[in-house]
Design a protein around this nucleic acid. Structure first.
Length: 706
RNA sequence: GGCGAGGUAGCUCAGUUGGUUAGAGCACAGGAUUCAUAACCCUGAGGUCAUGGGUUCAAGUCCCAUUCUCGCUACCA
């Protein structure tokens, strides 16, 4: 495979609604950074773009929650994330943001072009507005009767029973799945990206041409999506936060966030070009550009299916590869912002990178461990003990120690200068080390190009290990005792340390993509310019000239103490505990998590609802449904079948005998083929857990509730 | 429920198109050594390759079933 003329590397745009944790870092940003640093060391033309994703409904919602504005939210998190990345050595060429006018303009141009060439479909409808929720309803939030087969639970986009693709207005008796109300008809026009038109292209491009060179999980996920049937996807939304739809009569409409966000890669590239006086176009238009998206597995369909379709229609190049990573867990549990079970980049920086606690070397320590446990083929686990072990017994003891002992011995036995190499007395050990250096340089490059960063890093450490073994065999500290009687012995010492020092310089080059701060520090110790880190020097044995004076050794890394680990684990548990207490309903005094009060109704509306107390007499799981339980409820005057979506909260056998409140005059409804006659009232707490609403004492089934 | 990806030594993971006694690092045990951040070096113990069938002269590697984990998706009036 020939080398592309240029590379464009993207890392998933982080959503600007909060701190990002090390799972995000390990999934996308760190591997992308390693790859880019390698390419740049190769002097290849590579641009690394990223930026904050600042649109979407979640941001205004969060603003309401925090009692502030959407703008304030993004203005808070955008610079924070940018700084975090910088502190951890993630060297974007540009860190842009989607709220920037340049992005708005770029996204609008993109949309306009697709619109003008007939690649989008529009549908003007006058349905799907839910008055109680005050929102337009997406297709799948509407149900009704299928016009073709009369199935009564067809979705707004497709009938599950007959498989027919539908639009919401075709449904008979549509119902909002949000409120249960019939949505009112309100005219709205939306644009759609008809993915279904591109099925042939996607099949060929992904399932055939990339069947073997993309990661199995990526191809598998795409296959699953394509086989499931591609549907037109709405490109616009009725919302006032985002990129305005650039057409007359489209007031109050913005581009759907999934549509505008990936275009952020393009606008970021434009911004980079403006900053540097370069031309951005070839990076998105020239076939000889290699485009690589680094993402987490949750983003696969956007980057492999939807965005490529957009790019193709718009006349851009397609990604060459999308090396998606799996997820990283933390201390035995999934990382979760809502449960506060996570390690934020900022927290790590505060505790380890800042202060006089290690600085950039500690950023490298994190980079080392995250790379070593990168979830390249399956979910992985961040353990604080594992972090400590990896740093102390590999990075410090093998890598750092080899460099330190080389420098110390050189000062003690060679007068602080790079000793000469006496080819005449070269032996097989020397040759073996030379070969190992050359081999490792080659191997590391190949592994990085194949996105196998974990293995590549392992090879770097293995080379340091070879250095330690070599030194052990040569024992220059023993040989030194003979020099007084036999001056020629000094030559053996010279050869050993000459090679160890050249090896040290190589270790800086090879580690540079992974441990950039460390590589720089080694350059400092060796008194060489950073230019030596160019990859063309990897494998070279002439990096340090004979007779050159080097600096006094300094330790590259410090060890991680047991107390630090214990403190972090404590902190993690405490934070999760506090979060749990905060969200426990009894102690919650804040209004932040309370849903807004619905519009006022008159008494007559309320009186229409017939509420009764009932007793559950039987309960069982509904087949082929994860969330549904089929209940028999004794209402005194009759026993009814009611289907309820509570299977994930209760075991069927444990709820028999419980009293519940039932809406008895709700229209019957079929779910998974079972007719449900009524609805059980449930209360949901801040943790999302459901609780029955029932009388405090057992009373007769059938008793009215008002 | 459907689809996808995984389940290999205590831990983290490799195992190419099926082919001799299944590999590495960490941790552990023993030994050697002192230049080095109680670091390094050598040696060792450790696995019925999730379970059960099948194909084959031969299976961790292919096929079927089961089970567990993760993700996408459906079901929640």
């Amino acid at each position: 495979m020939s080398t592309p003329k240029r590379y464009l590397i993207t890392a998933a745009l982080p959503y600007a609604n909060g701190q990002k944790h090390i799972g995000h870092l390990a999934g996308a940003y760190l591997p992308a950074d390693i790859y880019v640093r390698y390419l740049k060391a190769q002097k290849r033309d590579a641009v690394f773009v990223c930026g904050s994703d600042e649109h979407g409904t979640a941001i205004p919602i969060q603003a309401t929650k925090e009692g502030t504005t959407a703008q304030a939210i993004i203005d808070k998190y955008h610079p924070l994330m940018e700084q975090n990345f910088k502190d951890l050595g993630i060297a974007f060429d540009v860190y842009h943001r989607t709220s920037d006018p340049l992005h708005h303009q770029t996204a609008q141009e993109f949309f306009t072009k697709l619109e003008a060439s007939g690649d989008l479909e529009t549908k003007e409808t006058e349905q799907y507005f839910d008055e109680s929720a005050q929102t337009f309803l997406a297709d799948r939030y509407i149900k009704g009767t299928c016009p073709s087969c009369n199935y009564d639970s067809a979705y707004g986009d497709q009938c599950e029973k007959c498989g027919k693709s539908l639009s919401p207005e075709e449904l008979i008796n549509p119902v909002s799945t949000l409120s249960g109300n019939a949505p009112i008809k309100k005219t709205t026009k939306h644009w759609y990206l008809p993915l279904n038109r591109h099925e042939d292209f996607l099949r060929e491009w992904i399932l055939e041409s990339h069947a073997n060179d993309w990661r199995p999980s990526v191809v598998g996920q795409c296959k699953s999506w394509i086989d499931g049937g591609l549907q037109p996807r709405a490109v616009t939304r009725d919302l006032d936060w985002g990129v305005k739809v650039p057409l007359a009569g489209a007031d109050g409409k913005v581009l759907y966030v999934w549509f505008d966000a990936p275009i952020g890669y393009i606008s970021a590239t434009k911004q980079w070009a403006l900053n540097t006086g370069k031309d951005w176009k070839p990076y998105w238009e020239d076939k000889d550009t290699k485009l690589v998206h680094f993402i987490g597995k949750d983003n696969i369909v956007f980057h492999c299916i939807i965005f490529p379709v957009m790019l193709r229609l718009h006349g851009n190049i397609l990604p060459t590869d999308v090396p998606a990573n799996e997820f990283m867990n933390l201390e035995g549990d999934k990382m979760s912002t809502s449960r506060n079970w996570k390690l934020d980049m900022q927290d790590y920086i505060t505790d380890f990178v800042n202060k006089e606690n290690g600085g950039g070397q500690m950023a490298d320590a994190l980079r080392y461990y995250l790379t070593q446990i990168a979830p390249e083929t399956k979910d992985s686990e961040f353990m604080w003990k594992g972090f400590q072990d990896a740093i102390n017994s590999e990075l410090v003891s093998v890598y750092g120690n080899f460099i330190n002992r080389s420098l110390v011995l050189m000062h003690k036995l060679c007068g602080g200068k790079v000793p000469p190499y006496h080819a005449a007395i070269e032996d097989s050990e020397d040759i073996a080390v030379k070969e190992a250096i050359a081999n490792t340089a080659k191997k590391v490059g190949e592994l990085i190009e194949a996105y196998r960063f974990r293995e590549a890093l392992f090879e770097v450490i293995a080379l340091a290990r070879i250095g330690n073994g070599y030194m052990q065999k040569k024992e220059p500290w023993i040989v030194a005792k003979q020099v007084a009687e036999n001056p020629a012995a000094q030559q053996q010492i010279d050869n050993c340390l000459h090679l160890c020092l050249q090896l040290t310089a190589n270790l800086a080059i090879l580690a540079q993509p992974f441990l950039p701060f460390t590589a720089k520090k080694i350059c400092h110790l060796l008194k060489v310019v950073d230019k030596i880190l160019d990859w063309e020097n990897a494998g070279s044995l002439k990096l340090l000239s004979v007779g050159y004076t080097l600096r006094a050794p300094e330790l590259l890394f410090r060890k991680i103490e047991d107390e630090e680990i214990a403190a972090q684990i404590q902190k993690l548990n405490d934070a999760a505990q506090i979060k749990k207490m905060e969200t426990t309903p009894t102690t919650s005094s804040s209004t932040s998590t309370i849903a807004a009060v619905k519009p006022e109704i008159v008494f007559d509306d309320f009186a229409k609802i017939d509420l009764r107390v009932g007793t559950i007499v039987a309960a069982s799981k509904v087949e082929k449904a994860d969330k549904l339980l089929q209940l028999s409820v004794d209402l005194g005057f009759e026993t009814r079948t009611i289907v309820s979506g509570i299977a994930q909260h209760f075991e069927p056998e444990t709820i028999v005998g419980k009293q519940v409140t039932v809406v008895v005059n709700l229209a019957p409804r079929k779910m998974r083929g079972i007719e449900s006659n009524g609805m059980i009232l449930m209360a949901e707490d801040a943790n999302g857990k459901l609780h029955f609403v029932n009388p405090s004492d057992n009373i007769n089934p059938g008793s009215g509730v008002s």
